[in-house]
Write a protein that binds this DNA or RNA. Structure first.
Lengths: 333, 333
DNA sequence: CTGTTAGCGCATTCAA
DNA sequence: TTGAATGCGCTAACAG
């Protein structure tokens, strides 16, 4: 592996000059520049990124924290981030937090220890204070799907309230009046916002919301089925059910099938996220599109702009969800 | 940020001694060790991993190349790898190759440039020669789901042939005699092996295989539907269809529904991979379980053992697939 | 068991 | 525009 020193020797210039043409941040005459370039080519020179990092105090890598590495949602997010960063020659280091405060912290500290230039965090469990303190420590980061007032410029969010609103309004417009709602874990910000949107849509239609129509799920498939059972056991009447994500909606559909409840003939179902297989289900799932790929890209762009001084990138912090009407929801009969 | 030097000052020992207790690879008296530990704690010392890397020529990071960052399959794989490596304090750097030779090469060189200690590759498009050359260059790596004779000790594979065999045998045991087969892209090793297994099962049952029963898909959802149309348009008779992966099987089921073909009443379907939502489909999909999580873990262990000299890890190179019989396949009527 | 000394490969002052 | 010198923070011989 050739070093910068060998290049400088071959080119007959100083080591500093080689460094300059590499980073081309200082004036070098065209002639010497060419000599250096030739020497680099001849030696097949590849700069040692570790040494660059040590000397420049910049690692050209950004750390990403997601809840889970698997699952359709985070996959798309990571995909967007890596695609975007790599075009600029930046590395993506990933870790997962498993929605656990301790593990999220560990992951974040782990990434900081690795001297990442910036972090992209989908942190659900650490406190606002911790995040604020992170900023105070001088750590650069973007925050996905979480809004903190004092960190507003770092947040990339979906308007979850609006999404919840759209989902419910869709059902109301189809004539449904008796709705059930399966929420995500209520300690999560997005779960709260989606429910707020739901209530707002009900209110607009002068429909009262009662606790009896609410079941708190955990965003996982199984809790969809549990929610359905819960409502059924309580003798609730409802013609439609709103789920705070697609996986729970999928659980509702599976369970309904076991129970012989026709979907959408007897029960309309709406999900949230528009994960890839929502359209593979039967019936295809009506849901709210979460533009996670675009949002991941935007987070990466935010970093590129603020940390790596990339120009010409505009950053949009709030994304607007859209309804994807499909087969699982129909006019109330 | 405290440095090793400040720790040594505070502890009243030499810089080398501090380094020794950090890596605890040399004898240090308990007393001085304690002094150093105290000093580190007092300063909140965190070693600079970049400097460590430069000095030791080891980065404690392993690069991972997958085809796509999204999708259930690779998600599970990355999840396993990261879980395993992080327990040992190693970092996971990810890149995607998009099944494109050029991009796969770029990704690999990118990871090497980042001084990864080792790579875990799910490389589908680069040539065997390139991989062999990689070894010759002294690059450490594990190869997922690809077998190359001369690199055998680096390969972590599923017995795809056996999987293909099991899928088809299952249908034959259910009494089906007229089968159709939708393969993956035939340039992929796993697609070939699965088809070989299919043929083997047919042969055991004295059933001839003809080209007319074969449609080459691309492992994507859409090509499942296309395959079904293809067979139907050619007037093929078949009571069951084997798909080389679950996504195509899902495509077959969607298309069958559009056409009013009952599954499994009129057509049994079997997939391959057992991706997470195979059990969410309706009917639930009979498939071949691909223990990708375990295999990812194994790849990480292989690296830990060979590159990081971790003891007590046994590495199993070949994994055996198992049949998951579910709702999409029934006795021929 | 501990300290001294040299680098690892590069970026970046400061002079020239 | 170029070069010489210094240091980033740490590891790893080599002595003692």
């Amino acid at each position: 592996m050739a070093t910068i020193y060998q290049v400088s020797e071959l080119a007959g210039v100083s080591l500093a000059t080689v460094s300059r043409v590499m980073n081309n941040n200082a004036k070098v005459s065209d002639k010497t520049k060419q000599k250096v370039l030739d020497a680099m080519a001849e030696l097949g020179y590849q700069p040692n990124s570790i040494a660059q990092s040590l000397a420049s105090n910049r690692s050209n890598s950004v750390g990403v924290l997601v809840s889970e590495l698997h699952g359709p949602f985070f996959g798309d997010m990571m995909s967007a981030i890596e695609d975007t960063l790599r075009l600029e020659g930046k590395h993506t280091i990933i870790t997962s937090g498993h929605s656990d405060e301790q593990r999220e912290k560990e992951s974040i500290e782990f990434l900081i220890g690795r001297k990442c230039d910036a972090l992209i965090l989908h942190a659900e469990s650490v406190s606002d204070e911790y995040l604020v303190e992170l900023e105070a420590r001088g750590i650069e980061f973007a925050l996905m799907n979480r809004y903190i007032e004092s960190l507003a410029s770092r947040c990339i969010c979906l308007d979850n309230r609006q999404g919840g609103y759209l989902a419910t309004r869709h059902l109301l417009e189809l004539g449904h009046r008796q709705l059930a709602y399966i929420s995500g874990p209520m300690w999560k910000q997005d779960a709260q916002a989606r429910l707020v949107g739901h209530k707002q849509a009900l209110q607009e239609h002068k429909i009262a919301f009662t606790q009896a129509q609410l079941f708190e799920g955990d965003y996982r498939q199984e809790s969809g089925g549990k929610g359905l059972d819960y409502f059924l056991n309580r003798g609730q009447k409802f013609t439609a059910i709103v789920c705070a994500n697609d996986e729970m909606a999928s659980g509702v559909m599976s369970r309904a099938r076991e129970l012989g409840i026709g979907i959408p003939s007897e029960l309309s179902v709406v999900g949230f996220d528009n994960i890839i297989y929502a359209s593979y289900l039967y019936p295809t799932l009506t849901t709210i599109d979460y533009p996670i790929y675009d949002m991941g890209k935007m987070a990466a762009n935010l970093i590129l702009k603020t940390v790596y001084s990339k120009k010409d990138v505009s950053v949009k912090p709030i994304f607007v969800p859209k309804l994807k009407a499909r087969g699982s929801s129909i006019q109330r009969v």
